[in-house]
């Protein structure tokens, strides 16, 4: 475990100020990624302080604002799963939240953490891409399709805090995670699809969670078979300890076929 200074801001303003002025500082939300990394000492450079944003009221809750659904960056998956508004307006995100880890992780894990961690296997990320979510930070709004800039890299500046995520109302998105077992599984392929507008977003098949643009173009033309064929060219899967590139490719196509045949509930 790295030795770090623990900082507990009183409100968002305080947090932003501390983050800006403390060298080597890392936000800490649920800690389900960060504590693991601190323990394994894999963070480079090693952090010197953590800023606990878990209890900041401004980062909590699920609410409707300006014709959008807004979810606080430090709201837990359990909070999202239990929210009536989330169930009604973003059921695919609720479905994704239910697949994360198991109960303990859902009680602590947050959307802000999933976003900032930017793992290609982050399960909410394709869903957020399919919803055209907007990442609201302490200083600006970042469209989700500009958020992931490389392997575990984001558009966030060094001292930028995620405050909330906004999604449009009324979009129909379907979701499927393929992770080999029913809980505590890291995705081999995770897909979210919207028919209109055409969005095909996939995780664990490239260095970032990505939008399958060729497949989307075909889908926009109403060409489902074309989309299923094209998606194979949109992805860049690899062989790793969890699966193989060949499997990921076939499953991406199969899952897309399956998701295009289901009628989303909304």
């Amino acid at each position: 475990m790295h030795d770090v200074t623990y900082l507990r801001p009183t409100d968002l303003k305080d947090a932003v100020q501390l983050y800006r002025t403390t060298p080597g500082c890392r936000p800490l939300a649920g800690g389900t990624d960060l504590i693991v990394m601190l323990h394994a000492r894999t963070l480079r450079p090693p952090p010197r302080a953590v800023l606990d944003v878990w209890s900041l009221l401004e980062l909590k809750g699920v609410r409707r604002t300006q014709g959008m659904l807004e979810i606080g960056a430090a709201e837990s998956y359990t909070g999202i799963i239990r929210s009536r508004d989330a169930q009604e307006h973003v059921p695919a995100l609720v479905a994704a939240a239910r697949t994360i880890g198991a109960a303990q992780i859902q009680n602590r894990g947050t959307l802000g953490g999933n976003l900032a961690n930017a793992s290609p296997a982050g399960d909410t990320l394709p869903v957020l891409l399919a919803y055209d979510a907007v990442v609201v930070t302490d200083r600006r709004s970042i469209p989700i399709d500009q958020f992931f800039t490389g392997y575990r890299k984001t558009a966030l500046q060094a001292d930028e805090l995620i405050v909330a995520v906004r999604m449009p109302l009324g979009r129909r998105v379907v979701f499927r995670k393929v992770g080999t077992r029913a809980a505590q599984a890291i995705s081999k392929v995770v897909t979210a699809v919207s028919r209109s507008p055409a969005r095909v977003a996939i995780g664990s098949v490239a260095e970032v969670p990505l939008r399958a643009r060729r497949a989307e173009a075909a889908l926009e033309r109403g060409d489902m078979e074309g989309a299923i064929a094209a998606v194979a060219d949109d992805i860049r899967p690899i062989d790793d300890v969890r699966s193989t590139a060949a499997y990921r490719r076939t499953v991406t196509q199969n899952v897309l076929r399956e998701l295009l045949s289901v009628k989303p509930a909304l």
Partner: peptide, 27 residues
């Protein structure tokens, strides 16, 4: 069904619980 160990250079690649999968209660 799922308990797989892949080898690399004579060592186990699935040497953590995140990669050595056993059935959960749900499975």
């Amino acid at each position: 069904t799922i308990e797989e160990i892949k080898m690399k250079d004579g060592g186990y690649q699935n040497d953590r619980l995140a990669t050595y999968l056993i059935p959960t209660a749900l499975d």
